[in-house]
């Protein structure tokens, strides 16, 4: 069986492995390669940050104890920067307080060395799936924001009123315009926001609010 060719390079997931032990890095990369997952190794968090986090989906596999910036510190740093790459931690010994901290901060999994290959692959698959979902959600929010940007000020005001569940009459009263005018704006909003139903429009309003 030939390895599945990626439809588009940008869509192909990439796993970044950070461990100061080259033997572990090598083993990890080859394991991932054996199931057709692209992977890159880094000796330290610094090396990872210098290489930059590309747009490709995927996840990070970090050793908890790393020279310089530790795995947990990197996790905190990435979370603060809004870069929600899922993280799988590896540790030499089952350090419970550390694993609790990592999981609370949003780690996908916490694996103890030596790691069972299937556990690692399952964790990587779950992390990639989670990253995909995040990316899709972020893309949808970005699209809605782009549509909302085409609305006029008055249309935006009517949109907000609808999103809050107000009736046309109430919106007209609030804005000091006639109900007919509200209906006209509302039709424009539905068209510009590419909403086929009122429910669809309200969902997009929700995405906008989240992105704000």
């Amino acid at each position: 069986m030939a390895r599945p060719a990626p439809p588009r390079a940008a869509e192909q997931p990439l796993v970044r492995v950070v461990d100061d032990d080259p033997a572990i890095r090598e083993a990890m990369l080859d394991l991932l390669r054996s199931v057709g997952i692209d992977a890159m190794g880094f000796a330290s968090t610094l090396a990872l940050l210098e290489a930059g986090l590309s747009a490709r989906p995927g996840c990070l596999v970090l050793d908890v104890r790393l020279p310089g910036v530790s795995g947990l510190d990197l996790q905190a740093q990435l979370a603060a920067g809004g870069d929600g790459l899922p993280i799988i931690f590896m540790t030499g010994h089952g350090d419970i307080p550390m694993s609790v901290r990592a999981m609370k901060a949003g780690a996908v999994d916490f694996l103890t060395k030596p790691v069972r290959d299937q556990d690692m692959l399952d964790a990587v698959a779950a992390a990639i799936a989670r990253d995909r979902e995040h990316r899709e959600a972020r893309a949808a929010a970005a699209r809605v924001a782009a549509l909302a940007a085409t609305l006029t000020r008055r249309e935006r005001e009517v949109f907000d009123g609808v999103a809050r569940g107000l009736m046309n009459k109430q919106i007209a009263g609030d804005l000091g315009i006639t109900e007919i005018t509200v209906k006209l704006h509302r039709g424009n909003v539905m068209r510009k926001m590419e909403a086929r139903t009122l429910a669809d429009l309200i969902r997009k309003a929700g995405l906008l609010a989240e992105g704000a």
């Binding site: 090598e26 060395k113 030596p114 790691v115």
Partner: peptide, 21 residues
């Protein structure tokens, strides 16, 4: 234990990967 775990971790992973290939 900590020192040994590194090579042992790599060893186990390599053996597993070998089987996969």
């Amino acid at each position: 234990a900590h020192e040994l775990n590194q090579p042992l971790g790599a060893l186990v992973m390599n053996a597993q990967t070998c089987l996969r290939w």
